[in-house]
């Protein structure tokens, strides 16, 4: 039971954190919970589909289909996060200033909610398919331990949900005037980390081989696969053995989002 709990919890940490951050980032947008819920639901359905086709996906790209698939999913999530941040920088101030009618807020807010629902769905999908495979294996394996493993798995899911709740409630403790800035930074770092991870999948698939030297090795200090390592990996993109290309992708994404945000907000700033 404990084994199943740990396996499932390890897989849902990332999605749990992301859901918490997205909920906090969109807490003032009407309908945000519905969209996050849809994202989770879509991710779960997608997980089952991906799990069912694991063998077929693996067969693509000379056996590296899963890596390419993961790299693609992450790239989409990066674009969605970047878009959300830029959009919020552009419209967030207006929304916060209550200059717009409630109806407008709902309509405009929901556009970026779709992007974030996709991010949530992608996070659930990537790790969720492994949970589905694990549970499926337990089911067809039969034996008397099924009940206890299923219980462990549900407790793992529960722990992941608790992680979401803690992240969300923790972020809500931040004073209202700062929370927009904090969640924007979190989302920017999330995107940068995902960009680096997308590159790591392309490297695993052998698609990119340039700049592949390891920049540092901190695996003995903090393993990326430990619980703390996984949390930092999701939040700020921590990697214990990043390649130069991963580091460049990280920095480039960070700069791209920050620069674009500044660029779109600058004229407004002057006008005000």
């Amino acid at each position: 039971m404990i084994g199943a709990l740990i396996i499932v919890f390890r897989e849902v940490i990332e999605a749990g954190l992301i859901i918490g951050i997205v909920l906090a980032a969109t807490r003032s947008v009407v309908g945000s919970r519905k969209w996050v819920g849809l994202g989770v639901l879509g991710g779960i359905v997608g997980s089952c589909i991906v799990a069912a086709f694991t063998g077929a996906i693996a067969a693509f790209f000379n056996g590296y289909g899963q890596e390419i698939f993961n790299a693609g999913i992450l790239a989409i999530a990066v674009i969605m996060l970047a878009w959300h941040n830029i959009w919020m920088a552009l419209h967030g101030r207006e929304m916060a200033g209550e200059l717009k009618q409630a109806g407008n807020e709902v309509r405009e807010g929901s556009r970026t909610l779709v992007a974030l629902a996709i991010v949530v769905g992608a996070a659930v999908l990537r790790e969720g398919s492994e949970v589905v495979l694990f549970l499926y294996g337990v089911l067809i394996g039969g034996g008397g331990t099924v009940k206890s493993i299923a219980l462990g798995a549900f407790m793992g899911l529960g722990a992941g949900a608790a992680m979401s709740a803690l992240t969300y409630l923790g972020l809500l403790k931040i004073p209202t005037r700062h929370i927009f800035k904090v969640t924007s930074w979190l989302i920017t770092l999330l995107a940068a980390g995902m960009a680096a991870q997308s590159i790591s999948f392309l490297e695993k698939a052998g698609v990119v081989e340039m700049l592949s030297n390891t920049v540092w090795d901190s695996s003995s200090l903090l393993s990326e696969k430990s619980i703390a390592g996984r949390i930092l990996h999701t939040l700020i993109g921590y990697s214990d053995q990043p390649t130069l290309l991963q580091l460049l992708a990280y920095v480039a994404t960070l700069i791209a989002i920050i620069a674009t945000t500044r660029l779109v907000t600058a004229p407004k700033h002057l006008a005000a």
């Binding site: 799990a51 694991t54 063998g55 693996a58 000379n62 056996g63 590296y64 899963q66 890596e67 398919s129 492994e130 495979l133 694990f134 499926y136 294996g137 337990v138 067809i140 394996g141 790591s200 695993k204 698939a205 052998g206 695996s219 393993s223 696969k225 053995q241």
Partner: peptide
């Protein structure tokens, strides 16, 4: 018949394997 997941932390391997099939990892 059950799926598996090849994992090796130090070698950065984490890849699902469907039942009765094969995968490759670099």
């Amino acid at each position: 018949a059950a799926p598996a997941e090849l994992e090796a932390k130090d070698m950065k391997i984490e890849k699902a394997v469907a039942g009765n099939s094969s995968i490759v990892v670099r």
